[in-house]
Design a protein around this nucleic acid. Structure first.
Lengths: 223, 223
DNA sequence: TGTACATCAGTGAACGCGCGTTCACTGATGTAC
DNA sequence: TGTACATCAGTGAACGCGCGTTCACTGATGTAC
């Protein structure tokens, strides 16, 4: 999909990091640390398992080295997830926006892909959207969710749909509309992430039901 | 609202526990521990602050005593929240079901009250609905959310609305409908709980928007 | 009414653990002269 | 071409901490005879 770039996002096995980095090559170690933390997070399925020591071990470094590359543990963890905020935009939202002309159809596609994205690796989703605010470094705090290209793009799509007369914007305009749709999808994903064993209807059925309700409502009388 | 009962749910200050419990009165200590843990959770606003030692301190006991009353920390924590699962049913769902005849109006009321409930003390909500499955003692796991009186009652209300011809049940029937509505509300609350500082439209506006979308849809064409 | 005994709430001290982080350091690498 | 020096990635050892949990115990309370 994207051009060849260093594979920082998703990799299959634990990343290898040969010998000591040369003078200007500290960034390579930094990438290795990020990749190792990412792998650890996915492999363990638990944020708690990602300790500074464990990450250092996985990269083949000693713990103090981590602090040469990251301010502290929270920054490291969130930087891991920043990669996935990018991915969310690059892999889920942007392609649909670029290729699907019909805004309503675009929303449907984004909805399905968003849920898939969340369920594919739940621990990232948990940190990105469900983590304690106090663990979120300030500079990432609100911005990542709201002013990411991501959510902004969705609002744009909704606006387009409203402009083209496809959707009715209520009191709050397109932003509220986007929030409503996102809340439903987020509620769905968050539940699955938190309680994967909870018996529930199939995800795809629920996404469709959410979209249908969102678009057409479930009431019989149009009052 | 409810008859006079020992106030285990919400109290203003840290609970007092005078001297050693008499022979048959171990349960009083147990209640005191639960109340202290609850208070600590609310006061600190963080599950992490609720350690066995901190709870013991708050009650005026030594840590080992906790283990006479609770199997381990997870059980204690979740039992704290079990109180609030009860509250959710008793204070939010049941009163509305008992007093509001119109099922659609009942859903509206429950929606507002549910969101209020969640935002009133976020840390409980977090543990109840957003906590790691592995920290949830097995016997509470799925049951609390789904087969609580709570969610069951909501499904009942939705069923009634469908039976009375007020709502259209889609492919998945009332259960899916209830899930859709709950997902949207949960998504809203969960976001506020996780990122309280995130700029977002006012809650009440969003709840209304969710209800309107859920009931009437936002699409202009009825296709 | 008095005494021996069983019960059981609560204690004191410690277990081992892993955590995030800091410090003064080593030693390889590149650069300036 | 050779040497002194600055840079900087990475280390070893330790800091202090708070955690959940266990153990053998004390001592007050109720009960049986």
């Amino acid at each position: 999909m994207t051009a060849t770039r260093p594979d920082t996002g998703r990799q299959a096995g634990p990343p290898a990091r040969p010998g000591r980095a040369r003078r200007g090559e500290g960034d390579r170690t930094r990438e290795a640390i990020l990749a190792a933390a990412d792998h650890l997070l996915v492999a363990s399925g638990s944020e708690e398992a990602v300790s500074v020591r464990a990450v250092a071990d996985a990269v083949g470094l000693t713990p103090p080295t981590i602090y040469r590359h990251f301010e502290d543990k929270d920054h490291l963890l969130f930087e891991v997830c920043a990669v996935h905020f990018d991915r969310l935009d690059r892999e889920v939202v942007a392609p649909v926006v670029a290729t699907v002309a019909d805004p309503v159809e675009a929303l449907r596609r984004i909805a399905h892909d968003y849920v898939r994205f969340g369920l594919d690796d739940p621990e990232h989703y948990r940190i990105m959207f469900m983590g304690h605010a106090q663990h979120t470094p300030e500079r990432y705090d609100d911005h990542q969710i709201l002013s990411t290209g991501c959510f902004g793009s969705v609002i744009d799509v909704v606006s387009r749909a409203v402009d083209e007369g496809r959707l009715r914007a209520g009191e709050g305009g397109p932003t509220v509309l986007a929030f409503v749709l996102w809340s439903a999808l987020h509620g769905l994903v968050a539940t699955r992430v938190a309680k994967p064993n909870m018996p529930a209807p199939p995800v795809d059925l629920l996404v469709e039901a959410i979209l249908d309700a969102f678009l057409h409502g479930v009431a019989t009388d149009p009052t």
